[in-house]
């Protein structure tokens, strides 16, 4: 136990960030479970899930509650950006740059050829930046199409059957992309890959192992050592 405690850790997420991240997980789980159950309604597992949610009506309530929760997470994120310098610093760090492409490519080269040094990423790796902005874009698409599908009857009358059909395809197809890109890939990238197995505890404790941090965010570590960053 004492040995484990001595493992040096680096802070990665604030308490508030962890709380919001937890609510985001809950919202996405509610949406994914109730959404995929509808898309795969002909399968036994989906039917069992729908039954567990209290039938089709209950499923819709869970899905819509998840959507409201996700919107609230988005609004809290905006609010945090307005009031918190830490959020604004992280936002600046997450802006995609041309160097991300170069670093991403050198990461691929290093893995395939083993030549040179592994890339030294900043506070956010190119993959993390891609996932942050990608998820944001996807959520906007899901929000817009979801708003149309909130009441299909009203939407058909207001827009058209064709448009609602289009939104249905966009919504259900995009959901599958989100599932792969932001759930499976994020779980692999953050919790399984790069020695993080079985998981990166930052989402619970806010801290990650220093040796992993050095390897995965080398440039950020250097900057912290120089004292240019906290």
């Amino acid at each position: 136990m004492t040995k484990q405690r001595r493992v040096p850790m680096v802070e990665r997420m604030s308490l508030w960030q962890r709380v919001v991240h937890g609510i985001l997980i809950l919202a996405i789980l509610m949406l994914v479970v109730s959404g995929l159950a509808l898309v795969y309604h002909q399968h036994g597992w989906a039917q069992a899930l729908i039954a567990a949610m209290g039938g089709l009506g209950g499923r819709a309530v869970v899905h819509k509650a998840g959507a409201v929760l996700l919107v609230l997470v988005g609004l809290s994120h905006l609010l945090s950006l307005m009031v918190s310098p830490r959020y604004r610093r992280d936002m600046r760090e997450s802006v995609p740059r041309l160097s991300d492409l170069r670093q991403g490519w050198s990461g691929v080269l290093w893995r395939t050829t083993g030549k040179g040094q592994p890339p030294r990423y900043g506070r956010f790796t190119p993959m993390q930046k891609f996932q942050y902005w990608g998820l944001l874009a996807c959520c906007l698409v899901m929000g817009a199409s979801g708003a149309v599908l909130w009441s299909p009857q009203a939407s058909v009358g207001l827009l058209s059957k064709r448009f609602v059909d289009l939104m249905l395809v966009v919504h259900s197809s995009q959901a599958q992309v989100i599932f792969i890109l932001f759930i499976l890939w994020h779980l692999y990238d953050i919790h399984l890959a790069g020695g993080n197995f079985p998981m990166n505890p930052a989402w619970l404790t806010g801290k990650m192992r220093e040796d992993l941090f050095k390897a995965q965010h080398g440039a950020e570590w250097d900057a912290m050592q120089k004292g240019t960053k906290e």
């Binding site: 009358g157 827009l159 059957k161 064709r162 448009f163």
Partner: peptide, 12 residues
């Protein structure tokens, strides 16, 4: 669907 209009026929 009371009040259904021509938009219901716009699409397959």
């Amino acid at each position: 669907h009371p009040g259904a209009n021509a938009n219901f026929a716009n699409g397959r």
